[in-house]
Structures are given as C-alpha cells and as structure tokens.
Design a protein around this nucleic acid. Structure first.
Lengths: 253, 253
DNA sequence: TAGTGGTCTAGACCACAGC
DNA sequence: CTGTGGTCTAGACCACTAC
C-alpha cells in the first residue's frame, strides 16, 4: 500500500541508498538543491522526503552544513513504532518461528476494550507463540475486531496479520498506543514461556487504529524478561511542554 | 529554546486549545482554510503545524473530513520520546522527589561509550534516586560529557538537567537512542530500590545527542518493576519495509 | 456539487557554516 | 562571500467525503 507519490518514492530511494552504503554513514547527502535536480522536483518535496528520514533517525539535518547520514545500523533497529513481528524478523534476521495456539471467532468482552465500549463486540482471538532459536520467547494474544476484520485465515495468522490486513483486506493501518509493564504471568503464559513459578514477564499491550480512527486490534504480548529488548529512536519534541501543567488533573493516572 | 516561528506557535496554540477543551475530543478542528484566515498564514504553514500535532497523536487527519481531536488524555501521556523527569513529573502530577546520591567530575571509561570511543573522556557523573510517594522508584545514573557540558551545578541536578542544558547552557537537544531491558541489578541498585535479593530491574539505557550530532549524555535508569510503565504513541511508518530485507534474502517477499 | 485534506510547485527571504 | 538548510507564500491540481 505504499503511496506512489514523489516524496515517498524519494524517501525510499534515499533510504535504500543509505542501506546499501551508496550514501555512507557520517557523510553528507547531496544538498537539497542537488536532490531537486536529481529527482526533478521542487525543494519542498525533497524536504518532505528528508523529513521522513529525519523522523526515522536515518539522517540528521544540520543547518548550514547538510544532511548527515547517521549510524543507527548498530542499534539493531525500530522495535519502536508499529511494526509487525514478521517485518522485525526479516530486518533483524533472527530466525523466528510462529506457532498458533488458538484461533477462533469470539465476542470480545468490553473489559478488554478499555475505551468507552459498553457492549461486547464480535471478533477473532488469536494466540501465538514466538520461538527464537527453538526456545519460546513471546506469547501474543490478539483480538481483531470484526467490523473491520471480517475474515482471518489461518495462513494469515501464521504468516503476518499486518501483511494480510494491509495487502489483502486493504486496511489502512495508522497508529497505535502501547504500554509496557512488568508483571506476574498467568498460568498459561508461565507454562508457554517456560518461566519459574515466581518469575515475571514483560507485558506489551497495544491498541491499534485505522486511518479513520476505527479500533481494529487489541494485543497483549508477553515476553520472557531475558529475551526482551525494546529499542527506540526519539526526537525531542517541544510542542506540549510550554503550557501550564494541565491544571485540573482529576483522574489519578 | 522554543523557536518562535509561525508553525510552532500555531501548533502550541492549537495544542493548548485542545488541552483546555476549547477544541473538544472527537470533534473536528476548523478546516485548514479557516485556520489560514484565523492565523493569517498560508496553508502549507498550517499544515506543518498540524503535522506536529498529528505526530504527537493529538489529532488524526482524515481526508475529505477534517482533523479529528483524539482522546489520548486518558493514556497518561508521552513517556516515549525524549522527556525529562521533571517534565513528566509536572504533566503527570505525580509528586516525585529527587535525591542526589552522587555528583562528581570524572573521566568516563570508553566501555560506557559503546560507540567508537577509543579513549576515555572527561565529564560529570550524577546518580539520583527518584521517590514517588516516599518510596524509591527509579535510580538514574547519568554521564554528562564535558565537551558540551562544561559546568553542572548541584541545583541543576536536583531540578532538571535538561532545563539547565537547554535554557542555561543553550544546548540544542535533538535526539536519543534508547534501549529497555530487564536484568539483574547490581548491589547498589538493589539496595537503593529496596529490591529482594533475587529481584529484577527494568533498565533503560540511552544516548542523547545535540542537533550537531554531538553525544552529550549517557544514561542508565533502573526502575522498580512494579513501578515501571512505559507508554508510547506510534504512527505506522512505511519507508524502510519495502526494500529487500537487508540480508542475503533473494526472494522479494 | 462544494468542502475537505494530500500533493506539488517556483519562487522568496532568512540564519548559519565555512572559506 | 557562497552554499547550506529553515521558513513561508500563493497559487495549482488531485482524491476523497458528504450532501
């Protein structure tokens, strides 16, 4: 579903050239003016392409000098953001295997939908175990809501649900909220991940939304603590801080 | 230093109006054309302001309809990104107290600087304990490198190092890489956080950089597992995935 | 059909880096 | 001084939503 507009194509082309070392780490990209000539576009379009790479941490723009290619390669890479396990598996080359434990149509209890859901909703429940080098590393529990997700073949669950939703169903996956905590596992999780009886798990819970703000997925991933690693690249944002600190804070977190 | 350009001012103004419920959750902002009239700017400038809010998850832009105000308030808020503990403390209203355990000039051993550092560098070492509701929650260990950070008064360490670096030293904090793992604490951490002898801690290690890509801070934060919570808002990015999977993978998926 | 956001253009002026 | 990125403009055309 990659939109075929100029700025995305340019961003992908430059990203690819960085990946293949045509643009080397710690060197500068051609100037924006040169890129205009190279791609035959206006400067604002080039700048929007570079903004994407900047946001991803591939480059750092420095006023008066140019766009420097950063060396984030060594930082394994974006486990942040919304990324499917299959994509991670591919980019990190970690030889993982997915085992489907459950896949069934159900009604999703409202308590799982922490938002303002009053009544339960139909959907699919998928439970998958992820093995890395033959040892269990992650247990995923996904609820796919049925208004957007009407079908879910077993092959899609075994491969990549995101692939299926985007490419086969044509859904426009847009954003997610995500929460990481450390907690005591329930019995199922403990046994699946082969944890000691007093052990802890890392729980990553997320709500994923389409571009029209429809909630379509609720996930809880439970990671073995010793296998868990979350890597993030973040840019400093200053939009929110300046204002007065939210005064009437009635809710307690 | 909040730049005083139009797009940032507009973004902050709209963010403030969302915060104060002048623009209500689940309603649409005025159209981009109306905002042009309201602020007396061109549309592209309005769009750049809205892009900032979009990136933060405050709004969702929907083609043909408008910019919808999202309800992320209930999600506590951006612990993602680069945000200082003081800012978090203020926005979340969590009544935290900072205790300085150590503050001294040192040379930072190269092993701590995981990048290509060959020789050790001078800097400051700060160890701080964060208490929430009188119970220890986080132990921070910061190295501030001395090329950019020339002085570090105790008052700055007790208040907010980020505040001091940005507003007093005028440094331009730009981005950071961050890594979250769960591991066994050393004795100091275990005692400071009052953990059992076989307990685990959540370790958040980060490298922070200035706008000119100078590394200025290396941090390790150790969190009590039961107090730890990481909340993230992420938008789906599609720049990197399309290309062939980096390794010797011949199939184009 | 009218209104919305999405993309793109060809200029302009500024601030900063480096010679 | 020249070249770089940062910001802004006033238009244009498109695709989508809604009526």
């Amino acid at each position: 579903m990659a939109a075929l507009n100029k700025q995305n194509l340019i961003a992908q082309d430059i990203a690819s050239k960085i990946k293949h070392k045509i643009y080397q780490t710690n060197t500068y990209l051609p100037s924006e003016h040169q890129l205009c000539d190279l791609y035959g576009t206006s400067r604002e379009t080039i700048r929007k392409a570079l903004d994407q790479l900047n946001e991803l941490g591939l480059i750092q723009k420095i006023k008066g000098r140019g766009s420097l290619v950063l060396d984030i390669q060594r930082y394994t890479f974006p486990i942040s953001g919304i990324t499917s396990f299959k994509e991670l598996n591919a980019t990190l080359g970690m030889h993982a295997v997915t085992k489907i434990l459950h896949l069934k149509k159900t009604t999703i209890p409202p308590c799982e939908i922490s938002k303002s859901a009053v009544k339960s909703q139909p959907g699919f429940f998928v439970e998958r175990l992820r093995l890395i080098a033959d040892t269990p590393a992650v247990l995923d529990r996904d609820y796919l809501l049925t208004p957007p997700v009407t079908k879910l073949p077993k092959t899609a669950a075994a491969d990549s649900i995101y692939d299926y939703l985007e490419n086969d169903l044509g859904l426009n996956i847009s954003y997610a909220t995500k929460e990481i905590t450390v907690e005591k596992p329930d019995d199922t999780v403990r046994q699946a991940l082969d944890l000691p009886s007093d052990g802890l798990v890392v729980a990553v819970r997320s709500h994923s939304y389409l571009a029209d703000t429809t909630l379509f997925q609720i996930t809880a991933s439970f990671h073995r603590p010793d296998k868990f690693k979350f890597i993030d690249f973040a840019r400093r944002k200053r939009v929110l801080s300046s204002d007065k600190p939210l005064g009437g804070n009635t809710s307690g977190k």
